[in-house]
Design a protein around this nucleic acid. Structure first.
Lengths: 344, 344
DNA sequence: TTGTAAGCGTTATCAC
DNA sequence: GTGATAACGCTTACAA
């Protein structure tokens, strides 16, 4: 790998400015005790030599790092790329840096996380991915605070922030029930992922004890094309009667469903079939879709995540683990009939 | 800021494993000269103590850093978030890390770049943003290779990779001309940005010397809502006759136009008015839009960018600057009439 | 306020 | 192959 050109160091600047080397360090440290005059002289010398402090050296000696690692899964889902953007902007605003990692769907994320932990990072945010207990132990040993974003981890004691997937989906279920849905198709995401599981359960809960309900589930692979293909498979042949309602556990799949229903089967939404998603991605709100969905309040979720990261690592694990569950916002949209009274 | 907990160091591991400290370093260096037996013993000790090498110290001492900084502008445009994703995945695949920065539209990017250069990074990718000559000089002094992505910089001598914006737009112009477009509306992006300028010029070039053409330009602010609002302003009042064709210099604006035309004015595309965009974002390819556009071959552009980053910095500037211009791919779509013969 | 000196945790160099 | 020892470039006592 590229060996870096030897940089200009604080010694060089010190010599040119006629001061000691630590003085240079002070000149670049806001609030350090140094006369304005001397600082100016040093900064001028620095500019002349194209000097900037080396963050690695500075981090090493000060034993701090203003870096936060963000591990994103499934960036093909616009929800997660929108989320990454919010993380980058928020973290940058507090003068910290983002070390960005992505982990491909279904691939082992341990390698990537291990990579991240070799940095003395201030914190690790894990978005839509699993974390092995081995790594949890490692993060503990390293004293790196970890917060799971939008993922409930089975039997784990990690802190996390997530949207109220169950209740949000339950609301959508109730709306569909009120709108007369009886034969329902649920499009799952990652069948193992907590997000999908919680949403399916929440949605189903709205129909508990109601007679004459048929619910069917198919897999949409958490992607546009996965959901689209699922629709084509389901409706393509001479199968059972059409359902009258579809709940896709996320918006990108709902969009895939909508396109397939319209284009391949000429079905009108919501007249022929009603539809709902979850997440509130920008794309779903465009005029051709105006998807009825529950919006995850990303800004708030991100800021609470960063807030948790401030806590001491030992307060983020085990009995002290913080689970923050944030309610989603219903977006009425037009894909469930009779949403007029929800209009803003 | 958070002071990090003191980590387990290679000395601790060395003591436990009964070896010297450098041996620990070797155990973690692929291909270093150490017996397999000793390495195993050391790795076991490391695992027991939750030791991982400190990248900062390692970088400092080895004078190399496997980090690449990516500065993204306008992440609200899906093209750039899709691009960031490709950068993250590509860079990660070569065992390097991504330091991600975002610069808000129109905001000064110098601060952010300065921040990035305090890291001894292997390279800096600048996406859709300007770089002041001062910073160019600094990057030179620091020996950090810089490559501009999708942005031609006026009078600058920086290396860059971009799509052939002029020719791609010219193709769209010719198609529209062949389809009978006479009164044309161009929706600009950032009026200062080279991307928008080149696309406008390329598009106009297709109508050079053709009689009876009227071309009008409006600003769409490079965003969905900007373009949407521009349409509403333009078509809302009792203005001049409708144009028969709209060229938005990027897809996200074309989508904004499409929605406004359909929803607010009941215009059918392409029957009442034809439309084209540029970029090839996923959203534009969905069934409700099937936008006619030119796709930027992002994967190739990214890989060429990373390739350029390998070059010595002095070969990326001045007379040696490399400008790579990559042709875009026409996506026929359905928003210009008579594209049948282009069907795959 | 300022300079001297001692780390921070690695890798690189060089004998053995 | 292995271990001592010197960098790497900075921050932080401590003394002046």
């Amino acid at each position: 790998m590229a060996r870096l050109k030897t940089r200009v160091t604080s010694f060089d600047v010190a010599k040119l400015a006629g001061v000691s080397q630590p003085a240079v360090s002070r000149a670049f440290t806001p609030g350090a005790s140094i006369t304005k005059e001397k600082r100016d002289r040093i900064l001028a010398a620095a500019k002349e030599l194209n000097y900037v402090p080396n963050v690695f050296a500075s981090n090493l000696s000060s034993n701090r790092s203003n870096m936060v690692a963000v591990i994103s899964g499934n960036l093909n889902n616009p929800f997660y790329s929108e989320t990454l953007q919010v993380f980058v902007e928020s973290i940058q605003r507090t003068n910290r840096q983002v070390l960005a990692f992505s982990v491909q769907d279904g691939r082992d994320s341990d390698d990537v996380m291990m990579q991240a932990m070799r940095y003395p990072i201030d914190g690790l945010v894990v978005t839509s991915a699993q974390m092995s207990s081995e790594l949890v132990k490692l993060s503990e040993g390293l004293g790196i605070p970890v917060v799971m974003f939008n993922r409930r981890v089975e039997g784990s004691e990690l802190s996390g922030v997530q949207c109220d997937n169950f209740e949000g989906s339950a609301i959508l279920g109730r709306l569909m029930n009120a709108a007369g849905a009886r034969r329902i198709l649920i499009v799952r995401g990652d069948p193992q992922g907590s997000t999908s599981i919680d949403r399916v359960q929440g949605f189903r809960s709205a129909f508990d004890g109601i007679a004459g309900i048929e619910i069917e589930e198919v897999d949409g692979e958490s992607s546009y094309s996965g959901a689209r293909n699922a629709m084509i498979r389901r409706f393509g042949g001479p199968g059972p009667r059409f359902p009258d309602a579809i709940f896709a556990v996320n918006d990108i799949m709902a969009i895939g469903c909508a396109d397939a229903l319209n284009e391949n089967f000429g079905l009108k939404i919501p007249d022929d079939i009603m539809l709902a998603g979850f997440d509130g991605i920008r794309e779903g709100q465009r005029a051709p879709y105006s998807l009825t969905t529950v919006r995850q309040p990303v800004e708030r979720m991100v800021s609470e995540t960063l807030e948790l990261l401030q806590a001491a690592p030992e307060n983020l694990k085990g009995a002290e683990a913080q689970k923050r569950v944030i309610p989603g916002d219903l977006i009425p949209g037009h894909t469930i009939p009779g949403m007029g009274r929800w209009a803003r």
